[in-house]
Design a binder for these strands. Structure first.
Length: 199
DNA sequence: GGTATGATTGACT
DNA sequence: GTCAATCATACCA
């Protein structure tokens, strides 16, 4: 189980380490394959302007959920990082579905496995994320979070859908995964890594 | 009070 | 490729 100490660090460090971890909410979930880091000193972050009612949980204890409504339509899930009061977070952008595929398909409407959790809004819908989960600790039900078993090959690129600080390479993904919300601009795959570092 | 803006998605040309 | 849905928040008056 990933404990509070794991999250009491900068989001930029936590975000890549979450790739490969398994997230479940009420037993429904899968492997985290895509994350983005946000920090209070980051113009793109909801916490940038300082604490407000909306982003209050970003300034609460690390290791809790921060849930916000996107475009008035979608619920998006973040993990709060940094020490308490420092407003960092990791947006969970995509999962590879493993558990509760049937419930996900019901919530999403009959959809192919690739469309169940590949994007923050889709993931929120598939896992029934709502404001009711905002601020809840991730090490207690309905959440279940287990660390990854092995060190995966991680792709890095700019974050999606933001206009400020858009150049920062703060998006992380499981290289080669079929369940990313979008491909990485310069995908890192095993073949490419071999070519870059011939033994 | 009014208005512009999204950490998105799905439908459509 | 374009665009509407839909609403909380931010910002200005």
């Amino acid at each position: 189980m990933l404990d509070r100490a794991f999250f009491a660090r900068p989001a930029l460090l936590v975000a890549p380490e979450l790739i490969g971890a398994i997230l479940r909410i009420d037993g429904v979930g899968g492997t985290i394959v895509e994350t983005e880091a946000y920090d209070q000193a980051d113009p793109a972050s909801h916490s940038f302007p300082g604490p407000t009612p909306r982003n209050a949980s970003m300034f609460g204890p690390p290791g809790c959920a921060y849930v916000y409504r996107s475009y008035g339509v979608h619920w998006c899930l973040n993990f709060v990082c940094n020490d308490e009061g420092h407003g960092g977070g990791v947006l969970i952008r995509a999962l590879e579905p493993l558990y509760g595929l049937e419930r996900m398909a019901e919530r999403r409407g009959a959809a192919s496995p690739r469309l169940l959790c590949s994007g923050p809004g889709r993931l929120g819908q598939a896992l029934a994320v709502t404001k009711g989960l905002d601020g809840l600790p991730l090490d207690q039900p309905p959440f279940a979070l287990q660390p990854r078993a092995a060190e995966p090959l991680i792709a890095v690129g700019p974050r999606i859908g933001i206009s400020k600080a858009a150049e920062r390479p703060w998006r992380f993904g499981l290289a080669g995964s079929l369940f990313l919300s979008r491909p990485f601009p310069r995908p890192i795959c095993a073949l490419e890594a071999r070519e870059a570092c011939p033994s």
